[in-house]
Nucleic acid binder design. Structure first.
Length: 349
DNA sequence: ATCCGGTATG
DNA sequence: CATACCGGAT
């Protein structure tokens, strides 16, 4: 009889586990605050990108109480560039709830109540931080299970089946004894061996138990159904930089697209390109604008093309700038999305 | 240029 | 239950 997949995986993990800033070393007890913070950052974001942000956050806010007491603005600034800014708002709200409770709940259902914590993250925290036998199912685990079981039905239709199979992964006694290691072993395998494009099946500890390896089609799983196309939207923004290097910026509404981030003032975004005359209605002052160029930014559901204008004279008078919604801010004190950074950098801003 | 994904929200 | 949110990888 073949060795159990879980025992193969755990034996591999004991020899190959990655050292990560938020991960307890063997024999140590994980810090739920660090586990939570890392899991929020790791939603939709790769380890290498997260590490410097994680370290900056931990330095700025050594405990959940420090984070709870920080101003949201400051948290958003530290988060700037990491994307999915709702995560930062939820992070802050969650820290305040946890700080009020006094400690991190260990119960999945209580974790699930907290802002920014859903089905996946509640199970990740319960298993990794509190050693409870849950399998946190994310994209990595869906991929592993599709391959191990040789499931060829395409996502997203196959998701229910994949989850059903995945939650059985830790049924064996050995996995039940080491829930925290088991959850982290799944991630390490998915990140280093059972990767999306070119899995290293020859190095995989679970090779002998893997249907996809047997069939030689691991790299083609999981399969996916095809998907639709993106429309294009256009906008015009106006770049004003004063002699101090401060930029004229406004803050987007807290909810919705790029919520809470800072942006150059300009037109709304629409499907039709703007004429110069139309766009200038939205300019902070009426004249002396020069077209600098265009930037393109790709969102999930549309492509954004922004035309950037800048003031032609360095002698403009700040008092002439009629801007009910914008003010000069130093770039270091602003939360700029990647799209806005492109506009500011354009032709060396 | 296209693909990818946890959570919140409608 | 579908869609929006983002930057990074490929």
């Amino acid at each position: 009889m073949k060795p159990d997949t879980a025992s193969l995986l755990l034996a591999w993990y004991d020899q190959n586990r990655r050292v990560l800033p938020w991960r307890a070393l063997p024999g140590q007890t994980p810090d739920p605050y660090g586990v939570w913070l890392s899991e929020i950052m790791l939603q939709q974001t790769v380890v290498a990108t997260v590490i410097p942000y994680y370290q900056r956050f931990l330095a700025a806010y050594p405990t959940v109480h420090d984070l709870a007491q920080a101003p949201l603005n400051e948290v958003l600034q530290l988060w700037a560039g990491l994307g999915y800014y709702a995560r930062a708002r939820n992070l802050h709200a969650c820290a305040q709830k946890v700080s009020k409770i006094g400690f991190f709940p260990s119960d999945v259902n209580e974790l699930l109540e907290l802002p920014g914590i859903g089905a996946y993250t509640s199970r990740a925290i319960a298993s990794i931080a509190f050693n409870q036998p849950f399998v946190p199912i994310d994209g990595n685990v869906e991929r592993l299970i599709a391959r191990l079981r040789g499931i060829e039905d395409p996502l997203p239709a196959s998701r229910a089946l994949l989850h059903q199979e995945a939650s059985k992964l830790n049924n064996s006694a050995i996995a039940q004894e080491r829930p925290s290691d088991f959850a982290q072993a799944l991630f390490d395998l998915g990140a280093t061996i059972c990767t999306p494009r070119n899995p290293s099946c020859l190095l995989c500890p679970c090779q002998t138990n893997c249907e996809a390896f047997k069939a030689g089609n691991a790299k083609d799983l999981p399969k996916r159904s095809p998907k639709p196309q993106r429309p294009t939207r256009y906008g015009v923004v106006f770049r004003v930089i004063n002699p101090n290097g401060d930029i004229l910026l406004r803050t987007r509404p807290p909810q919705g697209l790029l919520g809470g981030t800072d942006e150059l003032p300009g037109t709304p975004w629409r499907e039709k390109p703007w004429t110069e005359k139309e766009a200038l209605e939205f300019a902070p002052i009426t004249k002396n604008w020069q077209k600098l160029g265009e930037i393109k930014h790709i969102f999930t559901h549309f492509i954004l093309i922004l035309t950037v204008y800048e003031m032609t004279s360095n002698l403009y008078d700040i008092r002439d700038i009629k801007c009910f919604d914008s003010s000069f801010k130093p770039p270091k004190a602003s939360a700029l999305s990647s799209a806005m950074k492109k506009c500011i950098i354009l032709a060396q801003g």
